[in-house]
Design a protein around this nucleic acid. Sequence first.
RNA 1: UCAGUCGGCCGGACGGCCGCUCCGCCACCUUGCAAAAGACGGCGGAGAGGAAAGUCCGGGCUCCAUGGACAAACGGUGCCGGAUAACGUCCGGCGGGGGCGACCCCAGGGACAGUGCCACAGAGAACGAACCGCCGCGGCAUGCCGCGGCAAGGGUGAAAAGGUGCGGUAAGAGCGCACCGCGCUGCCAGCAAUGGCAGCGGCAUGGCAAACCCCACCGGGAGCAAAACCGAAUAGGGACGGCGCGCGGGGCCGUCGCGCAAGCGAAACGCCCGCUGGGGAUGUCCGCCCCAGCCGUCCGGGUUGGUUGCUUGAGGCGCGGCGCAAGCCGCGUCCCAGAGGAAUGGCCGUCACGUCCGGCGUCGCCUCGCGCGGCGCCGGGCCUUCCAGAACCCGGCUUACAGGCUGGCUGAUACC
RNA 2: CGGGGUAUAGCGCAGCCUGGUAGCGCGGCAGUUUUGGGUACUGCAGGUCGCAGGUUCAAAUCCUGCUGCCCCGA
Length: 116
Amino acid sequence: MAAFVVQERRRDDAGPPRVGFTVTRKVGNAVERNRIRRRLRELVRRIGPDVMRPHSDYVMIGRRAALERDFAVMLDDLRAALARLDRPGRNRTRPFAPDAPSSDPPPSIPPRGDVS
RNA sequence: UCAGUCGGCCGGACGGCCGCUCCGCCACCUUGCAAAAGACGGCGGAGAGGAAAGUCCGGGCUCCAUGGACAAACGGUGCCGGAUAACGUCCGGCGGGGGCGACCCCAGGGACAGUGCCACAGAGAACGAACCGCCGCGGCAUGCCGCGGCAAGGGUGAAAAGGUGCGGUAAGAGCGCACCGCGCUGCCAGCAAUGGCAGCGGCAUGGCAAACCCCACCGGGAGCAAAACCGAAUAGGGACGGCGCGCGGGGCCGUCGCGCAAGCGAAACGCCCGCUGGGGAUGUCCGCCCCAGCCGUCCGGGUUGGUUGCUUGAGGCGCGGCGCAAGCCGCGUCCCAGAGGAAUGGCCGUCACGUCCGGCGUCGCCUCGCGCGGCGCCGGGCCUUCCAGAACCCGGCUUACAGGCUGGCUGAUACC
RNA sequence: CGGGGUAUAGCGCAGCCUGGUAGCGCGGCAGUUUUGGGUACUGCAGGUCGCAGGUUCAAAUCCUGCUGCCCCGA
């Protein structure tokens, strides 16, 4: 059972990557949902902004396994998921993916909250 | 020691690294005349609960609504007294029920204000009835029939018209008596609920108001996404001007028509009186206010967004006083989350705690086999903690909750 | 934040207001009809009435507290 699902969508502007988190009510009560969201946010903070492409939006959907799964393993999960998203032609939400290495300066802070 | 009962409290601790929100101070940059605002950084401080939960009650606060009186409807509460801002909460007491007891439970007003319901069974289920019976008389004749009396016994039912005993009688019956119960009256105790005593009534007056209802008391509505301020567009709003104007009546003052004039006539408008319709939370009454068209100009307005509301409060702690208590009063002291789609976190280490396994020691039971159980120590493994996350704020209620600490009381057993 | 509905047989629903017997359709099983199956007909089985208390002689029904699901308004 996966701990989370990552989605990506290009935004076509010059901004930094933005990350949104969602954990639905069926996953657990408020305490468990808060804990899942905080662990996922810490994953994004630890992995750094360089792995994600700029001017893209990411959505992380939390699952119940994110409560108990080992944190280091989840870090590898996230890296693998982002690498799969980088492979061109596989993502339906980003069908046209020019693999241009971005010359934009990397964002100095990871996005904190949900997508505003 | 065991069993039980009623409360009170806690609900991981310490440390390391990296982060988040708010507050204070400092440094620097940008905008600006300035006040100040914003961005980034450093240091220091603070940062979820006993239920933050469910949203079941009560308030504060804010807005809406036309002021008062009465009423209706709707909803709620329901022994008495007290506490409280208020409550459906809490405390004390009364009554009823359960328990050996500590203690626990009770929507606990009214059934001679009215309406209604009580299935099935049963003769009969509520302005008092007679199936099986019992008794007397008569007839035929030893078992029935007829008439009359009775309600003790049987049977049905959740419930059968006071209960038990004695007397009494043809058989019976509150028919009489004693006690108990019920009702009424009086006296006493108590603020009261209620209790005690005495007398009277022979008792024909069951249960259900968590059936309608009656009585007493309470309740305007909505909710911080309330609301206020700053603010771009549309619709709507206000003021002014022009044109236009619901109904009826009056009067002929103004106006208009005719006429030299008196006067006659006209009714669109002005004036006076009255009315109608709609709105102002339901009805009635008394008042009050607004509206009863179109066009133009100006003012103004404001979903999203920003700021405020937003945390100092019926506040916490300590001491003293009053009260059986709930609680109240006084003094001192403290400032203790303010996010806002939502911060209070992530990872790691140590230690307590829990649990399982093994070994040793000790005690008890003993179907005497190191069989079972308790306690202590040592070693190892696992889990590393219950229920659960503030969203304007308080007082309660209800529900969820691993484990632990502690106090009062009751019963049983043993010993002194 | 505020309000409403619903839970009954395997499935979809009545019954609740006005308390005493839980019923209908589909489905299931058995039988008849048919050479066989379907259809049709006949019969049968199957329900802690969401959970826990209370009122009552008696509760699916009345009252209270919980639980799940669905919906609406801001």
